Each structure stands twice: as C-alpha cells, then as structure tokens.
Simulated assay, not measured.
Amino acid sequence: MASSAGVAPEAIELAIKSKLEATHVDLVDTSGGCGQMFEAVIVSPQFAGKRSLQRHRLVNTALKEEIAAVHAWTQKCYTPEEWEKEKEKA
C-alpha cells in the first residue's frame, strides 16, 4: 500500500469504508497527485455519541497503516444526521 510515492487515494477510501463503515467519503489528494497529503470528509454511524477528539482517534486507529505512509492527514468526521445538516447549509 505504501510506496515512495505515498498512498493511492483508492486504498485509503477503501480502508475508510471497510474499517469505519463509512456511508460517505470525500477524499482529496492535496499534494498535487503524489499521494502524500490528504483531506477527508468521513460520514459514519460509528461517530454517534462521540466528541470530535474521540472521532479523530477512532479514524487514526483504524487507518494507522495508511496514515503512517503519508506526510499530512486532515479529517472532518460527521454522523449521517450531521452530514445531512451540513449539506443543507451549502
């Protein structure tokens, strides 16, 4: 999965969906395509009842190998209900 060129976005997205039961994932490679910096919006029912720090720890633990292979990782975590409200704002 990891290489000198970073991580393939598809591999990270697949890991997010399978390990976190994500219902929606927006993953952006902000490194210009080299796979070293990613921003993610993750929507998962696993975030229900958890504060922001708990959600980030859950993601970081689940994606430990993938995150270790990149230079920068930024995440925004929402429950499905919170995501629906975010979409209404836009």
Rank of each mutant, 00 (worst) to 15 (best):
Pro45Thr: 08
Thr61Gln: 15
Pro45Gln: 11
Leu58Tyr: 08
Glu88Met: 07
Ile42His: 04
Lys87Gln: 15
Glu82His: 05
Leu63Ala: 15
Val25Arg: 05
His56Arg: 13
Gln36Asp: 01
Ala15Trp: 04
Glu86Lys: 12
Ala11Lys: 14
Ala40Thr: 10
Ala90Thr: 01
Gly32Pro: 02
Val28Gly: 00
Lys19Ile: 01
Ala22Tyr: 01
Pro45Met: 12
Ala11Tyr: 13
Val25Tyr: 03
Ser44Val: 03
Val70Ile: 14
Glu81Cys: 03
Glu66Asp: 02
Lys50Gln: 14
Ala40Trp: 12
Val7Lys: 08
Glu13Met: 10
Arg55Ala: 03
Arg55Gly: 00
Gln36Ile: 05
Ala22Pro: 05
His24Trp: 08
Gln36Cys: 06
Thr30Gln: 03
Ile16Met: 11
Ile67Ala: 02
His24Glu: 10
Lys64Ala: 11
Thr61His: 06
Ala8Ile: 04
Phe47Val: 00
Val59Ile: 04
Thr79Asn: 04
Glu13Asp: 12
Glu39Gly: 07
Ala22Thr: 10
Ile12Gln: 06
Met37Ser: 13
Val25Leu: 04
Gln46Met: 11
Thr23Gln: 04
Ala22Cys: 10
Cys77Asn: 15
Ala2Met: 11
Ala72Cys: 09
Val7Asp: 07
Gln75Cys: 00
Glu81Thr: 13
Gln46Arg: 14
Ser44Lys: 03
Lys76Trp: 02
Glu21Ile: 00
Lys17Pro: 06
Gln46Asn: 06
Ile42Ala: 03
Glu65Ala: 14
Val43Pro: 01
Lys85Pro: 08
Val43Ser: 05
Thr74Asn: 15
Val59Trp: 02
Gly33Glu: 05
Leu20Ala: 05
Ser3Ile: 00
Glu39Asp: 11
Ser4Glu: 12
Lys50Arg: 15
Ala5Lys: 15
Ala69Lys: 09
Ser3Asn: 07
Gly33Gln: 04
Glu82Lys: 12
Val28Tyr: 00
Phe38Pro: 08
Ser18Thr: 11
Asp29Thr: 03
Leu20Gly: 06
Glu21Tyr: 06
Met37Pro: 00
Pro80Ser: 09
Cys77Thr: 15
Val28Gln: 13
Gly49Ser: 11
Ser3Phe: 02
Lys87Ser: 06
Ala68Val: 11
